[in-house]
Design a binder for these strands. Sequence first.
DNA 1: ATCACACATGGGAGCGCTCCCAACCCGGTT
DNA 2: AACCGGGTTGGGAGCGCTCCCATGTGTGAT
Lengths: 343, 343
Amino acid sequence: MGVVDRHPGGRPTLEQVARRAGVGRGTVSRVINGSPRVSDRTRTAVLRAVTELGYVPNRAARALAAGSTDAIALVVPEPETRLFAEPYFSGVLRGVSSELADTDMQLLLTLVRDQRERDRLAQFVAARRVDGVLLVSVHHDDPLPDLLERYDMPAVLNGRRSGAESVPYVDSDNSGGAALAVAHLAARGRRTIATITGPLDMYVAQCRLEGYRDALRAAGHRPADTLVAHGDFTERGGHRAMRELLARAPALDAVFCASDLMAAGARAALREADRKVPDDVALVGFDDSAMARQMDPPLTTVRQPIEEMGRTMARVLLDQIRERSAERPHVVLPTELVRRGSA
Amino acid sequence: MGVVDRHPGGRPTLEQVARRAGVGRGTVSRVINGSPRVSDRTRTAVLRAVTELGYVPNRAARALAAGSTDAIALVVPEPETRLFAEPYFSGVLRGVSSELADTDMQLLLTLVRDQRERDRLAQFVAARRVDGVLLVSVHHDDPLPDLLERYDMPAVLNGRRSGAESVPYVDSDNSGGAALAVAHLAARGRRTIATITGPLDMYVAQCRLEGYRDALRAAGHRPADTLVAHGDFTERGGHRAMRELLARAPALDAVFCASDLMAAGARAALREADRKVPDDVALVGFDDSAMARQMDPPLTTVRQPIEEMGRTMARVLLDQIRERSAERPHVVLPTELVRRGSA
DNA sequence: ATCACACATGGGAGCGCTCCCAACCCGGTT
DNA sequence: AACCGGGTTGGGAGCGCTCCCATGTGTGAT
C-alpha cells in the first residue's frame, strides 16, 4: 500500500506537494493532469514529492474548480431489474465496471422505482452531478432519454426505444438472434414453427418477431398469424400463450420464445399437454438466462454478449463526455445460438 | 418537473437565492440544512426563492467545504458476484437503494476484481471519498475490513468473517436456517440425512453445517461424518459431493445442501444414480435462488431476507456515519423454509 | 429608561483545486 | 547588443459551499 499510510485527516494537499517539490501549485496541477508543458526534471521532482507524501487529489475540490464530477450514473428502472432478471443486469454491470476500472470515473448506481425517485433523478441530471448517464433497458415511452437530451447530458441507452432512436445506444442484434434460432429449427426439419412474442410495444419484442418472420421466409416457410401468440416476457404469459398456440395449431412441432422465462412457461404447458420436448415440439428461448441450463431438457437459446454490451456502453459514454461533438454511435452487437437439448 | 427547468450551465447558486430572498448566504445555508435557528418568516421566503429559481445545492462545493461526501460505496468482490449469483446481489442492492432513497446519499458501486482494483479501493478509502462502505460477502481472510477499521471508515459487512467479527455486520441466521431444513426432513420421517457443505473456510458454510448437526441431535439422530461431504458452493462441486455420499452411504434418504447451486449438482447426480426425488431421496437447498423454482421437482430451500438485509445494512451504516460513537451493531436476521416439491 | 441576554442574521475566511495570465528563461535573430 | 518567440513556471482569482464570529434586534428583568 505505502501510498496510503497517512493519518486520516492529515491528507496532503496540492500546496504541500508544491512546497516539497519546490515548485508552484500550477506546476503540480499540470503534472497531475498530464499536461505536456512541463520539463522532465520538474515532472520527476513533483512525482517524487507526490509519492513521498502519498498525495491523492481531492475530488470534491477538483470537481468544484473544474465543473466536472468524474462520475457517471447507471440508471436502472426498477421493474426492469426484476424482469430482465439477474444475469443480465449483473453482466452489464460487470462490463461497465471493467471498462471504468482504469479511468478514474466512479460509477453511481441509481435504481428508479417510482415517480419520486424519477424526479430525484431529473434533479440530479439538472444539477449535473454526473458527467453522463447509462440507461439500462428503456421502455418505448420512457421520458428519461428525452430529459437527458434536453439537458444536454451525455447518455447511452442499453437497447433502444424504436428503430429511429436518436440517443446513442448499444443493443444486441435481436432480429438476427431470433433468425438464428428459427433457422436452426427449420434446418432440423421442423415444419410448423410457432413463436411466442414479447409485449409488442417493446421494440425488442418487435425485432425478435421480425427475425422470426425473416428466417421463416428465408427457409421457404410462409409466416402465419395462427402461429404467433403474444406473451409479456413472463413465465405465466408464456404458459398462457403456449396453450393458445396448442389450441390454434395442434400440429406445431417447434416454438421460438422471445425470452427464456416465457420458454419456461411454455415448457410447463407442453408438459401438461403431454408433448415431449424436443421430440414432439422443439423449444428455443432467448437470453441464455440462468434458468436455461436448469430446465429439463436444458434450453437451447440465444445469447447476447451482455458483458460486452456493458463495456461498449461505458466506452461510448466516455467518448461522448470527452468530446461532446463526437458522433452519436448506434452499436448493435451480434448474438449467438447456444445449442442445448430442447431443440 | 418544474423545479428543474433552468438552462444548463446557468445553475443558480446559494448567493443568488440569498439575493432573491433578500437575506444573506448564511441564512440560506441554514434553511437548506434544516437548522432551527431561523425565523419562520425568513424560512418561508428562502424556500420560495429556492423553488422559484430551481436551486439545487452543488454537491462538490458542499463536500469541499464540509469535508463530507454524502456518498457511500457498495463494494463487491468480483469472484463473489459470480458465485453468490444473481438474486442475492440484486436483492441486497435493492434493499440498500430503497433505504437510501430518501436520504440524499448517493450509492457508489465498486466491483473489486484484482489486486489493482483492491489498491484503488484502498486509496479511495484513504482519500475519504466516501462517508462509509458496505462490504458484500466477505471472505474469512479478507483484509478489506481491517483496512476500513484502520482508516476509521464507517463500514458494515454483509455476513461476517468469523464468530468473533468486530466490524458491524448484518447476517442471516445460517445455522438456524440449516436447522429448519434438517428438522423438516427429520419430521417427514427421513432416517439418514446427509449434508453437502460449502467450503469450510467460509464462516457461512461452518454455520450451516453446525445448524445441520444441531437439528440432527435435536431430532434424536446421531451426526456421522460419513454423511458429511464437502462442496464449494458450485454446481459441479455439489455433483461430486453427491456421488461421494452415494458411494459412502448408499442408504441415505435425504440431503441438505448448503446452497441451491450445489443442490442442482446433487440433483443431477441423483438422476444419474437413478434415485427419485423426493421419493428415494429428499433434497433441500439454501438461498432460494432463481433456479430453485425451475428445478424438477422444484427445490425446497431456505430463504434469506435478502432485501431486508440490504436495508438493514444501509440503516446501520447511516447510523455509524451520523454518530461515530454509536454502538457497532451485529444484526442476525431470521431465515425461513420454503417448501416445494423436493422434500 | 437601562441593561443583559437570547436569538436571528450577514458575510468573511477558507475548503483544495483548475484556469489563465503574466513573468521568466533561454537560445537564436537582426 | 538589443530583440524576439517559444517553452516553462508562479500564483491570483474564483468555483459554491459551510463554518463561525460579529453584528443586529427584540424581549424581559432591573
